[in-house]
Design a protein around this nucleic acid. Structure first.
Length: 287
DNA sequence: CCCGTGCCCTGGCGGC
DNA sequence: TGCCGCCAGGGCACGG
């Protein structure tokens, strides 16, 4: 089988539970603080406007609320300003009451607050993004307007209509944020494993019941992960390096899981849509 | 419209 | 030990 990958890597990125953990921590930390300065070290991730514009418009704004839609972190600021933050693979936040003098080499930007505490954004690969929006338009234009609903909110019947004619593998659909928001590579694998459905199953070949099962499992798995502080492998950390505990509960998406926890047979690592994909070929059937 | 491919970016790893 | 080149991936642009 040509799509069996023999090299093993352990990478993970923040998905919906991890983003929710970060948002919760931010709400507990920087709410109502006023930004007095923004210091940008890596301008590349500030999109659509110049870094200077970000600095000038964010200065003196108060952080009124932080929320997320799918994997996007949304900072609601005073004067109807909205700042979108996407962590992508390796973006992370750290908060300092007393900021260190030494600058981390991966430091992208420092938000300096009026009490002299600071929120730092770090990103090893500079895949993260910042975008500016306002309260009126932030959910009416991309990227937020393109997002589907999160598994907990989604209408399964409507979702089923979308895959009726889709020849794509079900895993590819689960990773499509306009189909369902928040599922990434780990939880797509975990949800499909829990549902005993092979990731390469053609989306149109699944029944309504099977789709219902996948979304229900995805929601339950991500909810449990959120309660445990998310999955920490290598790349992800919540605010201030706090680690999640869900990695202990992963059933398939890990290089260290060599044998299926259910049937004991050897697990496989495949590529689906360019994404590393873990599967139990015995438990997970191709439809 | 739907789908597949390639790009972005750089740390870390395999290979020598 | 050190250096080189490849690989990881979420979202988007682009082309068929």
């Amino acid at each position: 089988m040509s799509n069996v990958i023999r090299k093993y890597y352990n990478f993970t990125m923040p998905e919906l539970p991890e983003v929710r953990v970060v948002v919760k921590a931010l709400n507990n930390t920087i709410l109502n603080k006023k930004i007095t300065n923004l210091i940008i070290y890596k301008p590349k991730i500030f999109k659509e406007f110049s870094p200077q514009y970000f600095i000038s418009i964010l200065r003196d704004k108060k952080i009124e609320k932080i929320d997320n839609i799918g994997k996007h972190i949304i900072f609601f600021l005073s004067e109807k300003l909205v700042l979108l933050s996407h962590l992508r693979m390796e973006g992370k936040y750290r908060y300092y009451l007393n900021p260190p003098k030494e600058i981390d080499k991966h430091l992208v930007a420092r938000f300096v607050f009026s009490d002299n505490s600071e929120l730092h954004f770090l990103d090893k690969r500079l895949f993260g993004t910042y975008m500016l929006r306002n309260l009126e338009n932030y959910n009416k234009i991309p990227p937020i307007s393109l997002l589907g609903l999160e598994p907990k909110d989604i209408d399964i019947e409507a979702l089923f209509k979308k895959i009726k004619n889709s020849k794509m593998p079900i895993k590819t659909k689960l990773l499509d944020q306009s189909f369902v928001a928040g599922i990434g590579n780990i939880y797509a694998d975990e949800a499909l494993f829990a549902s005993k459905i092979h990731p390469l199953s053609k989306a149109s070949d699944l029944s309504l019941e099977q789709l219902k099962d996948i979304i229900k499992n995805a929601n339950e798995i991500m909810e449990k992960s959120y309660e445990l502080g998310g999955t920490t492998l290598f790349s992800y950390e919540s605010l201030n390096k706090q680690e999640g505990k869900y990695q202990d509960f992963l059933n398939i998406h890990s290089d260290s899981i060599k044998k299926c926890k259910v049937c004991g047979q050897k697990t496989l690592k495949l590529k689906v849509n360019q994404r590393g994909t873990y599967v139990c070929p015995n438990c997970q059937k191709v439809y």
